[in-house]
Every structure is written in structure tokens, then in C-alpha cells.
């Protein structure tokens, strides 16, 4: 089923909240060493899928396997392989940025000296060096995203799962983060990002999956999925839901 060359293998994941089926049987193989984008409209089930694949949300059905380790059968081993940036969760924001990343490292049982060295480098790379001692609660939205990313990177995971990593991050920092991620992929790491910025995914990722309504509409390399068109055009075509451009005539009557 999953070869050693598969970083993350998802089979038949499904989740229901009350009467709403959020994820309706998703299967996906993320090749090791790929930069994998997951795109979909709001409420498509991206966050739910990634939460189930990373051990944060127990699926109703299905399995997730990371480099041969079943996430739900051996959670502690699987989590060692993964760095996770969840979307929409709080941080321990009464810690300073530096304390938070140190905390994330120590929680994973890392050696204190190693943690200290990596924290310094990470904060410098993410332009947070000047604010290392500021409490995270006083950070801006973009800085908060970056410090959460640093917490996910600290233990040098084999697979990075980033939910909306570029949201409210300024363009310079976003470019820096992209550099970091591209170098990480070049040395054999696997990155899975969810986003609804199609341009970004098309430029950055080599593989992509389109999710809508809790199902996968298309998956493969970016070139396969976009089939000659731009990713955005293809996405709109797959997902549908473009409203008619007729109507709203009164909007032109000012």
C-alpha cells in the first residue's frame, strides 16, 4: 500500500460533525521529497483532513500512515516524524517567542543545548530576532504565524504539515519562509501545505490535490492537474460555483 517512498499515505479518511459530513472518504499519497499543495474552497475539509492525518482529530473511518508508521496506532512514533502547523488554534501566548519555541523543542524531548542553538537560528531566519523576548500575545498575526512555524520546525521533522502557513504573513517573510521550505524539500524533506492562494501553490508546489465538499476532485503533479490551463482556471472549473456575472446591473448605474 504505502512504499517507503510515500511520506504520507491516507486511506478512506472520513469525518462527520453532527449531520454534516466534513470529509467524505479521502485517499491520498504524498510522495517523499515532494512539495505537496492541498487547495480547496472554504469549508472543503482541508483542515479536517490534515488534522486527522496528523493525529489531532480522530477520524470516523480510514487510516493515515507517515513513513510506514500508522498515525492512529502508534501516535507517539508518528508524531516524531511530523512537524505540524495547525490552523486556527491558539498558542501558549503568555510565553515570549523564544520561550515558546524552546518549549516546543523540550516537549519533544530534545537536548537543551541543541534546542537553544536551533531557536536562535530559526528566529533569525524568520525575522523574529528583534522580538524574541516579546510575549507572543503581543505579536501581530503574521508574527504569530511565523513563531508557530518555528515551533513546528524545531525538531527537524521528516514531514512538514502546514495549514495555511502564509495567511497574514508579509511578502518578505513569505519569501523567506518559501526559501526555507524549498531548501528543506531539496534535501529530501516533504512539505504538505494547504492554501487557497492558487498562484502561490502553482509556483511553489510540485504536486497538488484539489478538495471540495470533503472529496478529492483531482490529484497529481501540478502539471497533470492543471492540464495546460492555469491552476486557478482549472480549480474554478473543477469546483464550480462561479456565480453568473449577469445581474447586479444596478451596480453600474451609479
Amino acid at each position: 500500500m504505502s512504499t517507503p517512498l510515500t511520506a504520507l499515505s491516507i486511506r478512506g479518511l472520513a469525518k462527520r460533525f453532527g449531520t454534516k459530513i466534513a470529509v467524505d472518504g479521502i485517499s491520498l499519497d504524498v510522495p517523499a521529497g515532494s512539495f505537496f499543495g492541498i487547495v480547496g474552497p472554504n469549508g472543503a475539509g482541508k483542515t479536517t483532513t490534515l488534522s486527522m492525518a496528523t493525529g489531532l482529530l480522530r477520524p470516523d473511518f480510514g487510516t493515515a500512515v507517515v513513513h510506514g508508521v500508522d498515525v492512529w496506532a502508534q501516535p507517539l512514533e508518528a508524531k516524531k516524524l511530523m512537524g505540524i502547523l495547525p490552523d486556527g488554534v491558539r498558542l501558549f501566548d503568555r510565553l515570549s517567542g523564544e520561550q515558546l519555541v524552546t518549549y516546543a523543542g523540550l516537549l519533544r524531548g530534545m537536548d537543551r543545548a541543541v534546542v537553544a542553538a536551533r531557536v536562535g537560528e530559526l528566529l533569525a531566519a524568520l525575522d523574529l530576532g528583534q522580538d524574541a523576548g516579546t510575549l507572543v500575545v503581543d505579536y501581530s498575526a503574521g508574527m504569530t504565524k511565523k513563531i508557530a512555524l518555528a515551533s513546528a520546525l524545531i525538531h527537524a521533522p521528516k514531514v512538514l504539515v502546514l495549514d495555511e502557513p502564509f495567511e497574514s504573513v508579509d511578502p518578505v517573510s513569505a519569501a523567506n519562509i518559501r526559501d526555507i521550505l524549498e531548501r528543506y524539500v531539496a534535501t529530501g524533506g516533504t512539505v504538505i501545505v494547504s492554501s487557497h492562494v492558487m498562484d502561490l501553490v502553482q509556483r511553489m508546489c510540485d504536486h497538488v490535490a484539489v478538495i471540495a465538499g470533503g472529496r478529492i476532485l483531482a490529484a497529481g503533479t501540478v502539471d497533470q492537474v492543471r492540464a495546460g490551463a492555469s491552476l486557478e482556471e482549472r480549480f474554478v472549473q473543477l469546483v464550480g460555483g462561479r456565480s453568473q456575472t449577469e445581474g447586479l446591473e444596478w451596480l453600474r448605474t451609479f
Binding site: 503568555r94 515570549s96 523564544e98 524552546t102 523540550l106 516537549l107 528566529l123 528583534q130 516579546t134
Partner: peptide
């Protein structure tokens, strides 16, 4: 709010560098 440079790990530097020690440091800070 003012920006503050790092270098002050507080309790994280004092307590043992283990998961339980880090959680103690975090909880005490809180």
C-alpha cells in the same frame, strides 16, 4: 507594546530540560 530582544528563557533555563520539566516551567510562568 515595546519590542524585546531575547536571551531570557526564565524558568525554562532553570528547570530540567525534559518534557515534564518544560511543562512545569510553562505552567509556573502562566
Amino acid at each position: 507594546s515595546s519590542r524585546r530582544k531575547g536571551g531570557r528563557l526564565g524558568l525554562f533555563a532553570l528547570l530540567p530540560g525534559t518534557p515534564a520539566g518544560a511543562i512545569t516551567a510553562r505552567a509556573l510562568t502562566y
